[in-house]
Computed example of a mutant assay.
Amino acid sequence: MIVVERDIVLPAPLDEAVSYLEDFRRTEEWDPGTLRCVRSDEGPVRPGSVWRNTSRFRGRTTRLTYRLDVMEPAHLAFVGTNKSVTATDDMRFEARSGEETLLRYRASLRFKGLAKLATPFLRAEFEALGDKVARRLPIAVAEHRR
C-alpha cells in the first residue's frame, strides 16, 4: 500500500473548507491527475454519494468510482475503486485562527492483483503528486471564495 500525507493550510474557515471539498467533482480544480470527475447520483451531497473520476497517471488514463464514506463536520473520506486499485482520500480539518483551516490530507492506494507488484516503484511518483496537490489546493480554495 502507498500512503501519502500532507498538512495543508487552506485560506477559508472550517465550514467553507469542508463544504468546498465535500463535492468530489472539484478534484478537477486541485488534483493535477484528475481529468474529469462527474457526480453519478442526484440530490444533496451525503454519505453514499458517488462520482466517476477519470485520471491520468504515468501517461495512462484510469477510471475509478468514488463514494463518500464519511461526512462529518471536520472529517470527509472518499473511497474509489476499480479492478486494479482501491484509493482512499481521508480529510480531517482543524479550525485555525482567522480565516484559515488546517487540512490533514491522507491518500492511500491499495493495489490489487498483478498491480501490487508495481507498488514499490510508484511510491516516489505519488509523493510528487502529493506535493502538487498541496500547492494547488489552497489556490483552488481561494479562487472558489472569490
Rank of each mutant, 00 (worst) to 15 (best):
I2L: 10
V3R: 11
V4H: 07
E5P: 05
P11R: 12
E16F: 06
A17S: 15
V18C: 02
V18L: 06
S19K: 13
Y20C: 03
L21H: 08
R25F: 04
R26K: 13
T27E: 11
T27R: 12
E28A: 06
D31N: 14
P32N: 07
L35A: 06
R39H: 09
D41Y: 06
R46D: 00
N53K: 10
S55Q: 11
R56C: 00
F57L: 02
R58C: 00
R58K: 11
T62Y: 13
Y66K: 10
R67D: 00
H75E: 07
N82M: 02
A87R: 13
R92H: 13
R92Q: 14
A95P: 13
T101G: 02
L102I: 05
L103W: 10
R106A: 06
R106C: 06
A107S: 13
A107Q: 15
L109E: 05
R110C: 05
A118D: 00
A118T: 02
T119P: 07
A124Q: 13
F126P: 01
E127N: 09
E127T: 09
A128W: 08
D131P: 07
D131A: 09
V133E: 00
A134C: 07
R136G: 03
L137K: 08
P138K: 08
V141S: 04
V141Y: 08
H144K: 13
R145S: 04
R145L: 13
